[in-house]
């Protein structure tokens, strides 16, 4: 049987509603971020989303900005990020996606970046600051390597552009629950749910909801409203930030956190 592509593996991950756990590759150090990733996997995440650190992360709130900075200060490089993926791959086959800013990919060259990502074991790539209008080169690389090309949809995405995005997207669609940047919010907005219905009506590609999601009740509500997945980033990175220097505590807290979020998701399925 032919080897499954990243796109296939991601689709399979959302057969049942799934939990996507985000952490920054190399935060707070390369070796600790590998341990943290393993803890997220042990807790039961269905997809691991690795943030590729960038000096100017304009879509991120203060928590993830600080994580990017810790990782860069600790010396992470693009090679180092691929190294983190390879280490995780020795441990688990859980689908891995990158959340990356365009300049990192551009600088390395799309083809080389996607080839190296595939070789390391990456299944999907979301380039945060690359709208579909500018995606031609990335889509060619995605097509060639089988790595899923993930796109954001937001409350400000027009119907016309939503059609364009669902046509280009593969793996899953990342639905941004609110305006603004990543970071905790009290509630998931009503607008997010009407957008969710709108996207689900247009495509069979799984839809996962993120930005501002942190609590079990958020996850329950999101799944109840028909999403295929829940994405949590800043809440996970906050645990790292609060327990710097105590990797064991970070890992045990995160493992329990993922387990509880996963239980909430399963309960609503």
């Amino acid at each position: 049987m032919a080897e499954l592509s990243g796109k296939d593996r991601l689709s399979a991950a959302f057969k049942k509603p799934g939990f996507v756990a985000y952490t920054v590759a190399g935060d707070p150090s390369v070796s600790e971020s590998v341990l943290i990733s393993k803890a997220l996997i042990d807790g039961g995440c269905d997809v691991l989303e690795l943030g590729v650190p960038f000096s100017d992360p304009v879509a991120d709130g203060s928590v993830i900005q600080a994580a990017d900075k810790r990782a860069l200060d600790a010396g992470i490089t693009t090679d180092g990020v691929f190294g983190v993926v390879k280490e995780i791959r020795k441990y688990s086959g859980v689908p891995i996606v990158f959340l990356v800013y365009l300049n990192i990919v551009f600088r390395r060259g799309f083809d080389r970046f996607y080839d190296e990502a595939k070789e390391a074991g990456v299944d999907g790539i979301l380039i945060v600051d690359m709208p579909p209008e500018e995606a031609e080169t990335a889509l060619l690389a995605s097509e060639r390597t089988g790595i899923a090309q993930i796109f954001l949809v937001t409350q400000t995405t027009s119907d016309e552009r939503l059609d364009m995005i669902v046509k280009m997207a593969s793996g899953f669609i990342y639905l941004v629950s609110s305006l603004g940047v990543t970071g905790k919010r009290d509630d998931v907005s009503k607008e997010a749910f009407s957008l969710l219905k709108c996207v689900k009506a247009k495509t069979k590609i799984p839809v996962a909801v993120g930005f501002g999601v942190s609590e079990k009740r958020h996850a329950e509500e999101i799944i109840k409203e028909g999403a295929d997945g829940v994405i949590v980033g800043s809440a996970i990175v906050s645990v790292i930030e609060k327990n710097l220097g105590n990797c064991e505590k970070i890992c045990s807290e995160l493992k329990n956190y993922v387990k509880s979020m996963k239980d909430a998701i399963i309960s609503k399925n």
């Binding site: 600051d129 709208p131 954001l152 400000t156 995405t157 027009s158 603004g180």
Partner: peptide, 14 residues
């Protein structure tokens, strides 16, 4: 040139 911003800002640029 181009328009390399997160999706949230695309509508405003249009």
């Amino acid at each position: 040139g181009g328009r390399f911003v997160p999706e949230t800002l695309m509508a405003a640029l249009y």
